[in-house]
Design a protein around this nucleic acid. Structure first.
Lengths: 329, 329
DNA sequence: TTGTATGCGTTATCAC
DNA sequence: GTGATAACGCATACAA
């Protein structure tokens, strides 16, 4: 038997080996269209025998589908890309893409730059767009040409389905847990005010506190450890009798722990601390961090599959968050 | 002025607008080949005016270049993909790819599966392969068809250039630092023995210790916090008088800190602890962690650019690691 | 159900 | 220096 040709088998080869036309082979491989049982069998046999794999570029060219999925992270500065959360999303998406012969590209989406979205919509190489941390402003600027192939991890819009964790519910659960464990003077450190993802947890916090007849103590943070430290200093300054802190990210919560440790304030004895995200090291801090875990990979995977498979998806899908009880609260 | 056509401008359009042939336009856009000054100018003008962007799929089809970059993570189990380090690499690569109209795909590379490598080599969609945590066995199985478009983050081989941090130097620096600060009974927690990336730090450790006339105390770990805890328990059991521990990953080092904290052993008073990687939370632990930082993104970016640009690269490039002095050692 | 013919947008080969 | 023309591999109306 002759050694396999160095050239990769093409659809033409498969068709010839199966004794059918290229069209028939194409239909069988693609899965739709008509084909007799026998034709189907022979094509499949020939394909596996030849180790055939369709050329994504040729397919994309013929269908006009595009060969890459763009993960676009909205933010004021390009450095929003450098974030462990983004890393997790990109990795999960890249894993899904591998099975679809597609690739991921990552880029920054300036907050007020509809031009970039138009470019993405027109770029033949773009199969779809997955947006992160987007805002209403950006969502409004999504061209209709992107309809059906743009999804959002975070808030959505009429033409952009959303995949997101139930932030509100998660925030509510945490604050209620703090209340249930006897805390009354509970402060919250939120994310940046312009970020839509901070709104629901903040609202939940206010609502739960008001329902309990307690005043709110809200300080904005920036999702970083440094921001958490600064916010905690503010809290200690403004409300020295605070007995619990809900930080809207683990990074901030870890910053909070650092401050309290330096001040010799016992956690959770004097002040309970709860985070948000369940990063790997939340289980290793001293004390270990009570937080809420989010199925980030699951969300990212679902979002990616929605755009890759062009499947219909409900306008908004909320994923449940899980309260992770540890030592700090 | 008529509204811009819904159809994206093609090379044909540019050529027509510039009053030249498609061939000429192609040369100008691509950058190589001959073209007169005037032709060049007119084409460029037309292209920008029309907002032309080449179709990656068509280009890939014509050149046979492939449309995605595969990041292949070697390991015994598929879960090797779920690692913050992999996340960082993929993210950096995805960022580079975005500027080249290419995408990244992420997949697991079984330790003894040359078949997958052959498939990747033959897959027309694959522009190149970037391997992580690879072994000699795998490198030997890299087909010649992948020559020039396969690179490795970690060890390399004749036909696979390597981009890696200077693990040996980093390990040496850390152990020497521990020695210089008066420690003598220094233990090391390494990574899994089969991983090539653990060899050089371990060798460096042995060498430095031997040069100082001190015995080695080596315990293998698995790069996880849990593994670090287990290894530390072993160390305390086998060598109760240990006064310093060098863990070959921050995750393990944080596990070590947790154990010592539970045991009431003071760090760095009783035992100094050093990590490796400089993960974000190394700066937030109690005590903060002395470690070595690695330019992971820089390495990944260089590796990706090497395969995307098909540039010649030296067979091995070692990036310097930086000692980050904090409280723990 | 099957095959023919054509188009997708680009690059590369050669004549000119 | 320039421009026809032929690939590149696949999908899909349309005719058979």
């Amino acid at each position: 038997m002759p050694s396999r040709p160095p050239r990769r088998a093409t659809l033409e080869d498969v068709a010839r080996a199966a004794g059918v036309s290229r069209s028939t082979a194409s239909r069988v491989i693609a899965g739709y269209g008509a084909a007799s049982e026998t034709a189907r069998d022979r094509v499949v046999a020939a394909a596996t025998q030849l180790g055939y794999a369709p050329d994504p570029a040729a397919r994309a060219l013929a269908t006009g589908a595009g060969v890459r999925l763009v993960v676009a992270v909205a933010g004021a500065v390009p450095t929003v890309l450098h974030d462990p959360y983004v890393d997790r999303v990109v990795r999960a998406v890249a894993e899904v893409c591998a099975r679809r012969d597609v690739g991921v590209a990552l880029e920054w989406l300036p907050l007020h730059a509809p031009a970039r979205l138009r470019q993405l919509a027109e770029d033949r190489g773009v199969r779809g767009v997955l947006m992160i941390n987007t805002t209403e402003l950006i969502l409004e600027a999504v061209p209709t040409a992107l309809e059906g192939r743009a999804v959002s991890i975070g808030i959505g819009a009429r033409n952009v389905p959303s995949f997101d964790v139930d932030n509100g519910g998660a925030g509510r659960t945490i604050v209620e847990h703090l209340l249930a464990s006897g805390r009354r003077r509970i402060a919250m450190i939120s994310g940046p005010e312009w970020m839509p993802c901070t709104r629901r947890p903040v609202t939940a916090y206010h609502e739960v506190m008001r329902a309990a007849g307690l005043p709110s103590r809200l300080v904005p943070g920036d999702f970083t450890a440094g921001g958490g430290q600064a916010a905690m200093l503010t809290i200690l300054d403004r409300w020295p009798d605070t007995d619990a802190v809900f930080a809207n990210s683990d990074a901030m919560a870890l910053g909070v722990l650092a401050v309290l440790r330096r001040r010799g304030i016992d956690v959770p004895g004097d002040i309970a601390v709860a985070g948000f995200d369940d990063v790997p090291f939340a289980a290793l801090s001293a004390p270990t961090l009570t937080t809420a875990s989010h199925p980030v990979e699951e969300i990212a995977t679902a979002a990616a599959m929605a755009v890759l498979d062009r499947a219909w998806v409900p306008p908004a899908t909320a994923y449940p968050s899980e309260l992770i009880l540890r030592e700090s609260a």
